[in-house]
Amino acid sequence: MAALNRGTTPGATSLLDRVFEPGVLSSLDRMRLRISRASGDRPGHTRVRGRTDPSGSELDRWVPYVHGEDLRRVDWHVYARLGELLVRRFVAEREVPVWILIDSSGSMGPAGAGSKLDTAAAVAGLLGAICLAGGERVYLGGIPHGARDFSHCGPLRSRTALGTLHAFLGSLTPAAGEGDLVAAVEAALRLTSRGLVVLVSDFLIDPGLVARAADVIVRRGCEGRLVTVLSREDLDPAWLRGCDRIVDRESGRVRRIAPSVDTWQRYRDALDHQLAQVREAATSRGMATAFALSGSGIETLLRDELPKLGLALVR
């Protein structure tokens, strides 16, 4: 864990590159992401509660034998004691498709070590590496301008795909325009159902759009997780002292402001309200949320925030 204790130095190695350092990766091998109901169709190592198979390693329950079933599944010990033909059902073990969608719109910029996009990519890298170590099928996607621009990577399986994972995340750059979160989710889930979808974004958009994206996830029978990534500038607007105009990185729109303490306070109130609405849209649909501050260390993420998504140590 020594590698995790190092802080982030702006302008030095990016957070994403630190995730893929051997020391960090070996630490991630002992972590798993708990998945409650998502599952795929292919056999895997994740036990899916509420879903049974005739074979498996964990007995779920006994059901009455039905004509036509394989007689080899009958539990003859129970028949000897009770005189009933019962068949064992085991907890299903499946390979869970995990979609990690990263917002690469202009609002995540500017590019560089310690930026919001770097932090988002690091979060995605951590989750992706943990999922690959857990035997899941990982997909990566960048939140595009629309469905046609949807770029993705996957399926990735096992640790041998860590290089591909790193390369894709490293290739993400802030786009010039606004991202379309709903289109990205729809494009991703057109290929997949009953998987796990992790959205990594600053969510500085209309909360209604966040709710719509969450609805798409629910409708496709998937689990959802939301990770909000914000910068210190997003949190505290006092750095705008002396500026009377601001420009939106995504849209290029310019707006005049009154640089005053009152304005900063009203902004902070608006931000708190925005975060609360996003959290509400997620939790009301059974989705966990986490928060990442750009520039935070990997240890901070793993210790404080990502456990909120179901991250846990094994052994």
Partner: peptide, 16 residues
Amino acid sequence: PAAVSSLRLWESIAEP
């Protein structure tokens, strides 16, 4: 002008 991530939050604040 100073570049910010989004004008979304600022739109709730009246423009001088």
